[in-house]
Simulated scan of single mutants.
Amino acid sequence: MPETSINIVAFDIPYPATYGGSIDIFYKLKTLKEKGVRIVLHCFQYNKTEQTELEKYCEKVIYYPRKRGLRFMFSPLPYIVVTRKNKKLLENLQTNSYPILFEGMHSCAFLNATELADQKKIVRTHNIEHDYYKGLQKSSTNIPKKIYYGIESRKLNRFEAALEHADRILAISPNDYVYLSKLFPQVDFIPAFHPFNKLKSRSGKGDYFLYHGNLSVEENDSAVHFLLEKVFKHIEQKLIVAGKNPGKSLIEKAKLLKNVTLEENPSEDRMTELLQNAQACILPTFQGTGLKLKLLISLFSSRFVIANNTMAGNTGLKDLCEIANSAEEFVAAVNKISNREFTSEEVEERNRKLTAFTNDFNGDKLLKIIQEL
């Protein structure tokens, strides 16, 4: 079989892989490399330095500065797209004939460029972006941000039509697949790539519940405020909240509850320890787009998972979770699960059901798509 090669255009430097989008891209690179794919990685630099780690998985890594500034707010293109529109990227994509995998709508400024007409193009959607920004607009209490999110949502809704120029579209969740399939004929479902080659869940019991995520993201901040105010304020069970850069109000609110501990910026090893020893991960969300990578991480690493329909519904993973939607249902679920033992039979059952969410399984699926092009 001839060697398979691909250009991957990433909206960020995907290492260190510290949030959902970068985790999906980084472990996709690793998986494709293991399957013998030669990768030219193009990535935008704005909050990370160049990373030699990426050279282990890529034939070549090329960095581009991401533009910033108020003037880009006045472009007809979405801000997340126009600030990644770099002529050098367009030139470099023309130096080979490999297919191009554009990661996220963010990186699609040249999706319909005539200069790339002869190259096959794949777009990995990380969200239905206009819905995601509409959700951010609803949850934000900052007026300038609220205005920005609303404008960006409308621009992204218009820009979505550019996906017709993709030869294949890779949806990250079943919900997104259903939505995109109604608009475009060339859609496949490939769930997020992630750090787990095998199930790490342990049988037994834990003595605390865990919420984990990037706490600087408004969606996650809202979820934790809900847990503190509506759930753990009214029960005695212990909650650990672990994640990056929590806001001041969250730090203050956590201090008021004796049964809540906030762990800021835990190391990777500490995060693994917290996940494996928890009795359950508790994962409400009020933002329904994309596949919540924290759900996959929880199922691969922890014991029980309590989630709402917005988090787990139509993911193919709902039957592995205890579903709770209202505050009262979350309280009831915590009480119900507190003293349950996670059995070895449940570990085996989960292992079987997660096969279709392993990197190996989905790497083969992606490789087949690339080779078909």
Rank of each mutant, 00 (worst) to 15 (best):
D360H: 11
N309I: 08
S344L: 09
G104E: 07
I240S: 04
E91R: 13
Y179M: 00
T31H: 05
S267T: 15
F342I: 05
Y148C: 06
A254L: 01
F330C: 06
L257M: 13
A171S: 14
V217W: 13
I100C: 08
L32P: 09
V260Y: 04
K67H: 12
Q94S: 15
Y19R: 11
S140I: 04
N309A: 09
P266I: 01
V305W: 05
Q371D: 14
G288V: 00
D221S: 11
D207K: 08
T272D: 12
V61R: 08
Y27I: 06
K244D: 09
L215H: 08
F304V: 05
L367T: 03
E341D: 08
K294F: 02
P99F: 09
L239V: 06
P195G: 11
S249C: 05
M105S: 08
G21F: 10
Y133F: 15
K30V: 13
G247V: 04
E115M: 09
D207S: 13
M105G: 05
I369H: 00
G69A: 14
F226L: 07
K88H: 14
N112F: 06
G36H: 10
E252R: 09
S5G: 11
N7A: 01
I23D: 00
K120Y: 12
E268W: 01
T310G: 04
F196K: 03
T355F: 05
P266E: 07
N157G: 07
N335F: 03
S5P: 00
F232E: 10
E263G: 00
L89T: 10
Y57V: 02
L274W: 00
L227S: 11
Y133C: 06
N127S: 08
E345P: 03
T141E: 10
K121T: 10
I235Y: 13
L320W: 01
H165V: 05
S139N: 11
Y177H: 10
L29N: 13
P65S: 13
V224W: 13
C321P: 02
N314R: 12
F196A: 08
T261R: 07
S173C: 04
R71G: 10
E348N: 08
G247S: 15
E328I: 01
C321E: 06
E322A: 06
K368L: 01
P16D: 11
P191G: 04
